[in-house]
Design a protein around this nucleic acid. Structure first.
Ligand code: FES
Ligand code: FES
Lengths: 126, 126
DNA sequence: TTAATTCAGACTAATTTAGTAGGATTTAGA
DNA sequence: TCTAAATCCTACTAAATTAGTCTGAATTAA
């Protein structure tokens, strides 16, 4: 039988990631499950298995990740959640505009960008 | 004795505001208390009393109100709350930049602006 | 003195979130 | 074919936060 696990050199398993990111492996397992269900990562099961990105880092944005893991991007529950008072609420326009700004910002932060920023950060660090 | 309550023609009492804003008077009482403690509104006690703005609408911003009633403006608990992982967390820069954008936006929305927007809204409504 | 009002703070209930537990399934390799 | 290393699945728990209530005291106009 061929070795599936060997075909994806960038993959990492839960144990590795959890150590690098200082996050409990059990919790990470859960999160990766969600990311996988939403097709941001793919996985190889069984011994030697692990996870890897489903797209190029330049094509994954913070916006996607946040919406998948945290739910809709919104400054208030009111804003996107179709608040029933929105019609006669003077604040609703503020929420919806702010929501737009947040989305705009988060959807232009790609993983690639983040990685680069983080690498320079390391150099700059004393 | 002079009549304090008559001196501030724009004042409204809890009952009036709670009806206008469709919010329970008990809850509103609590919120007004917080706004008062933070000097966004002032009040007159006793019969005929009520609340009124402590500054001109052009000098009160959504940012202030939100920070007073909702706490620090932040997209994540992590961002401004001095997350202890921030040093080796690749996401922290995203949170802090987004936080800046949110503050910038909210601090330029004055009450005056909001009132104007809301008036035109009424005209436009079918 | 009375009635209308703000003021103060404790309390409750509901919801959300972060995180854990336990076991089933899949797979590589000996 | 057996075993160990991994993902997968999903229910559960605990903690924190939030929205909102309740009670009663203090203040003031009339
Ligand atoms: S109460 Fe929901 S938008 Fe204002
Ligand atoms: S974990 Fe707090 S900033 Fe990333």
């Amino acid at each position: 039988m061929m070795n599936l696990a060997a075909d994806f050199p960038t993959k990492k398993n839960i144990k590795e990631i959890s150590q690098e990111e200082h996050i409990s492996s059990k919790y990470l397992e859960k999160l990766m499950g969600i990311l996988k269900k939403n097709q941001l990562v793919r996985s190889v099961q069984g011994q030697g298995g692990g996870y890897f990105l489903a797209k190029k880092p330049g094509q994954i944005t913070a916006g996607e990740i946040v919406e998948i893991l945290d739910g809709p991007i919104a400054p208030m529950k009111c804003s996107s959640a179709k608040c029933k008072m929105a019609e006669h609420c003077s604040a609703s326009s503020v929420w919806s505009e702010l929501e737009k700004e947040m989305k705009k910002f988060l959807y232009k932060q790609t993983l690639e960008k983040l990685i680069k920023n983080n690498q320079t950060k390391k150099y700059v660090r004393k």
